[in-house]
């Protein structure tokens, strides 16, 4: 028992450094995918076919490729066409691109779920498209979108473990390396799993709280 504690203690700093990197990858990919997702959603709901159609193709395309393949593609193929990326950058871009599709689709659904009467009301007081988006549609879509957005965030956090395949030293990667050098699989991977839960459980609780207190239309 004593040795378990001391072993866990010796693994702790390494796993925590991985945990920080997991958080960094997740936050960076979240920012990228949210901004891109918003762009996709705006283009797809623009009502302009020349914008909506190509966007749809890009989104469908990206959604049809497994994250691992996207990551390999960015990390190994990009340098061959002269774009050198660190593993961290490649990981963030790969995750961000992939998730921008999911998040863009939830944003689009949210925008389309806003009552058309709201848009008419906005138009009837002279609002132009941009102002209608900013003052009327997005604030209401935000409430609709919050729960699925939260789910996407949790999934993104878990999927950030996939960037270990391109050697980003995040939590899963650190766990794998520790386990193969110590052969202490059970302790290491239990700790890894618990550390993920330390992030996902509070996030889920936070989301349910927001949903209950904010997601509802007043």
């Amino acid at each position: 028992m004593d040795s378990l504690v001391s072993r866990a203690e010796s693994y702790w700093p390494i796993l925590v450094s991985g945990l920080w990197l997991t958080i960094a990858v997740t936050v960076a990919a979240l920012v990228l995918s949210t901004v891109l997702g918003l762009v996709w959603a705006m283009l797809r709901t623009s009502g302009v076919p020349a914008l909506a159609r190509p966007t749809r193709v890009i989104v469908e395309f990206l959604r049809g490729i497994p994250i691992l393949v996207v990551l390999f593609y960015i990390y190994f193929v990009m340098p061959e066409i002269g774009i050198d990326l660190t593993a961290f950058q490649a990981g963030v871009i790969g995750l961000g691109l992939t998730y921008s599709c999911y998040i863009g689709e939830t944003f689009r659904a949210g925008i389309e779920a806003v009552d058309p009467g709201q848009i008419e009301a906005a138009k009837s007081i002279g609002m132009r498209r941009g102002l209608t988006m900013r003052r009327v549609i997005l604030p209401q879509a935000f409430r609709i979108v919050l729960p699925p957005y939260g789910n996407n965030l949790v999934m993104l956090l878990k999927d950030s473990s996939q960037v270990s395949v391109i050697s980003v030293a995040e939590l899963t990667m650190q766990g794998k390396m520790l386990a193969s050098s110590t052969f202490d699989n059970i302790t290491v991977f239990t700790m890894v799993a618990l550390l993920y839960l330390c992030l996902t459980i509070p996030l889920n609780l936070c989301m349910s709280y927001l949903e209950a207190n904010f997601g509802r239309a007043r």
């Binding site: 002279g126 009327v136 604030p139």
Partner: peptide, 20 residues
Amino acid sequence: IHDIRTRVSMVFQRFNLFPN
């Protein structure tokens, strides 16, 4: 058309107030 809409207001059957 946006300027025209500021000259003529509209009241709808289903009110269409901004709920937020």
